[in-house]
Computed example of a mutant assay.
Amino acid sequence: MRKLLIPIVVILIGIFFSSVYIIEEGNRGVVLRFNKIIGLSEPGLHFKIPGVDNIRLIDAKIQTTDSSNNSGREQKFITREKKDLIVDYYVQWKIIDFDRYYETIAGGNSVENLLLARLNGRLRAEIGKLDIKDIINDTNAETKSRNSLMLKVKDALNGTKQSTVKVKEMPVEDLVAVAEIDPENITSMRAFGVEVIDVRIKQINFPPEVSESIYDRMSAEREVVARDQRFQGIREAEETRADATLTATKILSEAEKQARTIRGEGDAYVAKLYADAFSKDLEFFSFVRSLKAYEHSFNGSDVMVISPDSDFFRYMKLNTNIKSNKK
């Protein structure tokens, strides 16, 4: 009896461990019975029928898909001005219907590829309605801005609840076939069990052939601005120099005026001093004045023709008489 008990216990332990499975946080488990979905397992400890039920783990976290997943090809879009743009973007999405999502991927389809195809189609339609300045404009305007464009694309990808219910009645393979033919005709990504949370444009570039012409035009415009700035600087420099010259001339003129006024006042004061001094002795004044006249008159080899009895020689005669009396 004991020999039979041990194998039975081992078998029961094996059955127990084969029927227990754990779903980690952030994941969900789709329960399949004979390849048909019979339920969804939340995170935690669960049981299944060994050998009958299979569990397929699905990542329930928010997913991010980048535009670089487009087979490595640059996505060109045409604006309303018929200008080519290369747009780099990403989209965040999550699974809201795990049964529908599993049906999609079970058929060998990629939800990311379907999402990118749908997203490219909607972006192409929305960018074609706007000018370049509207796409670059990152504001919250309701009509023409990058933010409004991304909101419209997100709403278009999610669709309405009524359209989602109607589309979900269609088989997944039929929806995938329509998506491959014309992505813009798909009503909602919810039809594949996913919901778009956010769409963001990371970078907008021009194609290389367009960028060169734009850079050349910008360079020419900057050259014109630089030339205008240089001319403006030269004009302001000339005006500054002219103002400085005018100011200097005014200062020098005022200084010369003040100097002449001071010199005139000084000469007048000196003349007054002389007048006051000589007025006390007129004979001495006449004598000094005559000496000055002699000093300036008898200079070098100048010849003077004048009468000896002239009053000019009065003090010279006086000096001669003084010397004769001394002898």
Rank of each mutant, 00 (worst) to 15 (best):
L123S: 08
I127V: 15
G128H: 11
I135H: 00
I135P: 00
N137M: 09
N137S: 07
N137P: 00
D138P: 05
T139A: 06
N140G: 09
N140F: 02
A141L: 14
A141P: 03
E142T: 14
T143V: 14
N147L: 09
L149P: 00
L149F: 07
M150D: 04
M150Y: 04
L151S: 11
L151F: 10
L151I: 12
K152W: 06
K154W: 00
K154Q: 02
D155T: 04
A156T: 01
T160Q: 10
K161V: 09
K161C: 01
S163D: 07
S163K: 10
V167G: 00
K168V: 03
M170V: 09
P171C: 08
D174Q: 15
E180C: 02
D182K: 13
P183M: 01
N185I: 07
I186M: 03
M189K: 00
R190A: 06
A191L: 06
F192G: 02
G193E: 07
V196C: 03
I201D: 05
I201H: 04
I204W: 07
I204Y: 10
I204A: 09
N205D: 15
F206N: 06
F206W: 13
P207R: 10
S211D: 12
Y215R: 12
R217A: 11
A220P: 01
R222Q: 07
E223H: 10
V225C: 01
V225R: 13
A226P: 03
D228M: 15
D228G: 09
F231N: 13
G233T: 11
A237Q: 14
E238Q: 15
E238A: 13
E239G: 02
E239R: 15
R241G: 00
D243C: 04
D243F: 04
D243E: 11
A244E: 10
T247W: 06
T249H: 14
